[in-house]
Structure formats: structure tokens, C-alpha cells
């Protein structure tokens, strides 16, 4: 791709700074956890930390695609809820059904992603409103379908995807299946964004859609594909969450905002043009480390919300300051 506007190139450099910063935050927060609770330095507990953070990381990677294309995806949490409820109803506790149903779940995700993308690209509805609409719609559908309470059951082979921990693995000792999926999904997201022409097109669209169009980038398909990636990531996260803890009507509540926050902590610029998968990875690990830290500190729930707000402002504010200095 030679037709990419020049404006994209400097953003690569900046995205590496984003990574460093989020990595730094993560290391500091995890160090604080380790001070409070030294056993978090053991491989086993670190793996468990990753297992629990896996859904958020995967959501953030998906959200990143949409953010880079210049939009938001507020429907991710609703998709997670739909996936968990649908899996339980469709599988109904029958292990033989697990794999066919997982295929069906991805098909549902694909449909939601295509719908989001088409509404934004063709109907020109701003993504924040479009995905707000699909959020209500998908959530309502999931609840109407299940009657407002979980039905059916998840068999062990489905639960294992989010729950099983492999023992006696060389080097790391224990290895949760969720962590394998986490690594795979992150690598895939990173490859798609940073190693393919598609990734460059996505950055170009988010940076300046008009310029990208003039340069021959198919803006609409690119934008739609970002929503598809995001919805598929939400399906993956939903499978892991359902596996980790079972069926619940609240499974996805609030996750979309956490995913956006994680991307932003990871240096992604809202409304597009700048960001990296590594940044989203460490951004979400930082956020999750923060939750864990606040848990371990035993602070009242209320203060945790406030601290989260302060840290979000601080992280984004700091990155604004750094960029101001560098330009």
C-alpha cells in the first residue's frame, strides 16, 4: 500500500510510547499488589490474574479496532450478555452441542458487527448512537429470549474454556486455557493491525476518512470490518466469562466502558488515528491490576469508583501532556 497518507506514519512512533507508558503503569500497579500480597509474584497466581483479565484484554483489542477507525462500540457488553445467555439456552447442558453452538455464537456476533457497521457506514448514524441503539436492542433480545433469568445449563467442556487450568506445564507450572486463548487472540489482533495492509487502511480511515478515500481506501468496508472484529472479540470474551463463572444476566454489564478506558490508558486516541494492540493489552492489564489492588486494599466500594475516576483522568491527562510536548 503506497497510497496511505503521510499522516499515518508518525502515529506508529507515538503508539510505541503508548505501549511504554501503559506497561509502566501496569508494572507499578502489579508491584504494589506484590507488596501487599507477595504470593502474587508466584507464577501460579500471575497466571490466575491473567485468566481473570483475559476477557477484558480481548474486549479491549476488539474495541481498539473500532476506536482506531474513529468510532466507539458501546454494544460489546450487551453482546457478552447475549453470548452467555444464548450459550446456556442453546447448549442446554449437552456437551455434544458445545462446538456447534460456539459456531452459532460467532455467527450472532458477526450479525451484530455487520449491523453496527452498516448502520454507521450506510445510514451515517454516529457510532456512539448506533451502538447505543444496538446495545439496548441486543440486551433486550437476550433478556426477552431467556425470559429475564438464566435458563439451560453450560456443560463442563464449555466451562473449561474459561475455567480449566492445565497443571504441570513446563516453565510456567500452571496454564489456564483462558490464557492460551488470550495470547492467541492478542497475537491475532496485533498481526491484523500492525502487520497487514488492512491495519494500515484502518489507521488511515480513522485518521482522516476523506484523505483515505481519496487515496483509494475502501472506507465503508474497512469501517464495517472494524465493528465485526469488535463483535467477534465480544463473543470470545463472552465465552470466557461464561466459562469462568457460569450464566448470569449481568455478565456483560459495563464492560464496554472498561474496554474503552483500557484502550485509552494504552495510548489509543479516541476518534481514531493512533493506538496499538500492545497498548490495549497493557492498558487493560493495568485497569484489571487496579481493580485487584483496590480489592486487596479492602477499600470501601465507593472509594474504588472514585479512585478509578481519578486514575483514568491522570492516565489520559498524562498522555495528553506527553503528546503536547512531543509535537
Amino acid at each position: 500500500m503506497t497510497a496511505i497518507p503521510d499522516t499515518v506514519r508518525p502515529s506508529r512512533r507515538v503508539s510505541i510510547r503508548g505501549l511504554n507508558f501503559a506497561l509502566l503503569i501496569f508494572v507499578v500497579l502489579y508491584a504494589m499488589i506484590a507488596v501487599l500480597q507477595p504470593n502474587y509474584l508466584e507464577a501460579g497466581l500471575f497466571m490466575n490474574f491473567l485468566r481473570r483479565a483475559a476477557p477484558l484484554v480481548i474486549l479491549a483489542c476488539g474495541q481498539l479496532y473500532v476506536i482506531l477507525s474513529g468510532g466507539f462500540d458501546l454494544s460489546m457488553g450487551a453482546v457478552v450478555t447475549l453470548v452467555v445467555l444464548a450459550a446456556s439456552m442453546l447448549i442446554g447442558g449437552d456437551p455434544a452441542m458445545t462446538w456447534p453452538v460456539i459456531v452459532a455464537l460467532y455467527a450472532m456476533g458477526l450479525a451484530v458487527g455487520l449491523a453496527n457497521g452498516a448502520i454507521v457506514a450506510f445510514l451515517k448514524v454516529p457510532s456512539i448512537i448506533a451502538t447505543l441503539g444496538t446495545m439496548l436492542l441486543v440486551n433486550g433480545l437476550a433478556l426477552a429470549w431467556s425470559g429475564g433469568a438464566p435458563r439451560g445449563d453450560l456443560p463442563d467442556n464449555f466451562r473449561n474454556l474459561g475455567r480449566l487450568v492445565l497443571r504441570d506445564v513446563p516453565l510456567v507450572g500452571t496454564l489456564p486455557v483462558a490464557v492460551i486463548i488470550l495470547v492467541g487472540a492478542t497475537l491475532l489482533a496485533g498481526w491484523g493491525l500492525h502487520r497487514t495492509a488492512y491495519g494500515k487502511r484502518l489507521l488511515a480511515v480513522g485518521d482522516n476518512p476523506r484523505a483515505a478515500e481519496l487515496a483509494g481506501v475502501p472506507v465503508k468496508p474497512t469501517r464495517i470490518s472494524a465493528f465485526v472484529v469488535s463483535a467477534l472479540a465480544a463473543v470470545t470474551a463472552g465465552i470466557l466469562i461464561g466459562g469462568f463463572s457460569g450464566v448470569s444476566v449481568n455478565a456483560g454489564r459495563g464492560l464496554e466502558l472498561q474496554a474503552i478506558a483500557a484502550c485509552v490508558i494504552g495510548g489509543a486516541q479516541l476518534l481514531g488515528g493512533r493506538g496499538s494492540v500492545a497498548g490495549a493489552l497493557f492498558g487493560s492489564l493495568s485497569l484489571f491490576a487496579l481493580f485487584t489492588l483496590l480489592n486487596l486494599l479492602g477499600l470501601p466500594q465507593a472509594l474504588r469508583d472514585s479512585l478509578q475516576g481519578v486514575i483514568l483522568i491522570a492516565a489520559v491527562g498524562a498522555s495528553v501532556l506527553r503528546h503536547r510536548r512531543s509535537t
Binding site: 448502520i119 445510514l123 448514524v125 448512537i129 448506533a130 447505543l132 441503539g133 444496538t134 446495545m135 439496548l136 436492542l137 441486543v138 440486551n139 433486550g140 433480545l141 433478556l143 426477552a144
Partner: peptide, 11 residues
């Protein structure tokens, strides 16, 4: 169902 309809109408 209200939620579903409201979502569709917003869009």
C-alpha cells in the same frame, strides 16, 4: 421487548 423497540427506534 420495550428495550428492543427503543433501541431500534433510536437508530
Amino acid at each position: 421487548l420495550k428495550q428492543v423497540l427503543r433501541g431500534a427506534i433510536v437508530i
